[in-house]
Simulated assay, not measured.
Amino acid sequence: MKTDSQLQHDVMAELEWDPSIHHADIGVSVTGGVVTLSGLVRSYAEKLEAEKAAYRVAGTKAIAEELKVRYPADAKTADSEIAKRIVDVLAWDALVPDDRIKVKVEQGWVTLTGTVDWYYQKEAARRAAGRITGVVGVTNLISLRQVPVASDVKERIMAAIKRSASDDAASVTVLTDGGKVTLGGRVKAWTERQIAERAAWAAPGVTSIVDNIVVA
């Protein structure tokens, strides 16, 4: 198992390796496998990429994200212009049912509301909003429409995990209660945990997930 100093070194190397991240202004500290990212980034999208980079490193158990967005010295984009750009981007995104989503922008912070059928649509809307220049953060309050839960949803989730993950998938447990899914067990890498989450969200009728999988 990696020491905290080894994990810190690996996360810093991963941030430096990713060309979409300006790593010079990002600090990394690690305590008990929990990675803290601090410092400055140039956009909300870069903030998300830094998080993803840290999660990619084996041994990362959790992330405390304290990054702040600092834009170049240009004049700040008006909230009305940011909102218009987001609405336009959502309209062009084939994954997003834009007619069901409302956008609010206040001092660069975006709040998304509405109702969609699938979790991937909710995430696609968040990603699209986060790419717009001037956005400093996104609160995603889009809800999932209640649909009947398939009787074999647990089996579908387990089958999807086994198709995508390694032998670690055998240790993942799935409990269902209506549209709520609780994941448990142990895996060796954070990517295995993410695979299990994606598989659960892809199941019909799932509206919430409690992820208790331990990375060890």
Rank of each mutant, 00 (worst) to 15 (best):
L48Y: 04
V210T: 14
K61Q: 11
Q146Y: 09
A58W: 09
V30N: 09
D79W: 03
I209H: 08
V172K: 00
V210C: 12
D74Y: 05
D93C: 10
V89H: 11
K102I: 05
K104V: 12
V174Q: 00
L48R: 15
W92D: 12
A24D: 15
G130L: 03
R186A: 02
V11S: 04
V214P: 03
W201M: 08
V105K: 06
E192H: 09
D10K: 02
Y71Q: 13
I63S: 08
V187M: 08
E123S: 11
S208Y: 00
L183C: 13
R42T: 13
Q8N: 14
V57A: 03
S5D: 15
K84G: 13
D117K: 14
E155D: 10
G39I: 02
T176F: 01
L7F: 02
T111H: 05
V34R: 12
T207I: 07
P204Y: 01
V103R: 06
S164P: 00
T139V: 11
A78R: 13
A129I: 11
I213E: 01
R85P: 05
S5W: 06
T36P: 01
A216E: 10
L15N: 06
I209L: 13
K162L: 04
I63M: 09
T176C: 09
R193E: 03
A169I: 03
P148Y: 06
E14N: 10
G184T: 06
M1K: 06
V214A: 10
V69S: 05
V215Q: 04
P204A: 09
K2I: 02
I161V: 14
I63P: 04
K52T: 07
E106M: 12
V214D: 08
V149M: 04
L37T: 04
V34T: 08
M12F: 08
R126P: 04
R193C: 01
E123L: 13
V174I: 10
S151R: 14
K76D: 07
Q146P: 09
H22T: 05
L90A: 06
G134Y: 04
D98V: 13
P204S: 12
A159R: 13
W17C: 05
A75E: 13
Q121H: 07
K154E: 09
R100A: 11
E65H: 15
